[in-house]
Simulated assay, not measured.
Amino acid sequence: MLPRALIPPDRPRVSVRSEQFPLERQADGVRRIAEIVLVEIHEGSTRGRGECVPDPALGETVEAVIAAIEALADGISTGVIMRRSLQRTVPAGVVRNAIDLALWDFDAKRTNSSVWQIAGLDVPHRLTTAVTIPHGSAEVMGALAAQEAHRPLLKLELDSIHEFDRLLAVKVAAPHSRLIVDAHAGWTLDSLIQAMPTLKDAGVELIEDPLPASNDAGLASFKHEIPICANRSCRDRSSLPHLVRRYDAINIDLNRTGGFTEALALLEQARDDGFRIKVSSRVGTSLSTAPAAILGQDADWVDLDAPLLLARDRQPGLRFDGSVLYPPSVSLWG
């Protein structure tokens, strides 16, 4: 038996698994499932957690994400992979996001601190989040908007520039709500320019992804009466040179940036480059949304209603009071 002084100290253990959370019924009447991947780093009674949300539309599968994280588990356990080295060894995306978030949470808990303190941020405060009106018929979207008319900020999905009947239905049903439009890259440049006055009259204050990223050069050719936000084309800091003069704002999604570390750097660089900031999260649990709530303290728009879309959330989860989102408790994340 080895002398006690020669016995290696206990190393953190890394575990990864998939989980499913049912969503409330959507505008099309379909009840969906949010599929997430959870990473946990354990050392004694200390546990750091990170959650990512793979998007099959981007070729991300739960199985592939789990396999990639398992391949990195030994490096995390031995300390070869830490927050800084992770940025060099793993590309931006959901795999790095889950690991990075778990490392931040683990570091905060083992040092009896908080993520915002470690990152040198101000004390988190309450935020006002947008609430999504999902795509559907004008009748359905108007009815949903009527239920949410007390919300100060609504985000509606308009896949086509010709869906002004849906915009009008939402505006009539919720006349006092501010509006964000997510166009899902489904419009054309000419139709966008022609629609600007109508969108402005309706009170739309931000248009997200009006054009496909491969066809957005024309956005630099005219004055934007309404700010235009890059979402899918904004991944990390390397994205910013392409977006200058085309977009007025960027959307930061931790699943795209690959975690909190790059998201902080992206936000700082984007501010320096003159962009306004929107922070969002994919449809996951409060554990996915909590880091974005800390990141979004200085954002111009916050789109963090994902936990409100679930039929069942983690407990304890984030606290909402209407559209007001409270800072996450350290027992949840950070």
Rank of each mutant, 00 (worst) to 15 (best):
L101N: 15
H224D: 05
S77L: 04
L192C: 10
L6V: 03
G218D: 07
Q87H: 14
R83E: 12
I41N: 05
A263I: 13
P12E: 13
D55Y: 04
G186D: 11
V283W: 02
T46Y: 12
L332Y: 10
I250K: 09
V37W: 08
L309H: 04
A143H: 04
F260T: 14
I228M: 07
T198E: 07
N255C: 15
L103T: 09
R32L: 13
L127F: 10
S137C: 07
L127C: 09
R84I: 03
I228R: 09
R276K: 14
G259Y: 13
R151H: 02
A130Q: 03
V170H: 04
V330K: 14
V140G: 00
P307I: 01
A146L: 05
G136L: 03
A73R: 13
R232E: 15
A290L: 11
L189H: 04
S331E: 15
P316R: 09
F320P: 03
R314T: 11
S286H: 11
R235Y: 05
D74C: 02
R88T: 08
D74G: 10
P316D: 09
P197R: 03
L304I: 08
L310P: 09
V181P: 09
P175M: 05
D272G: 13
S177T: 04
T89C: 10
S191W: 03
E205H: 02
E268F: 03
D100L: 14
R245L: 13
N255G: 15
W187N: 10
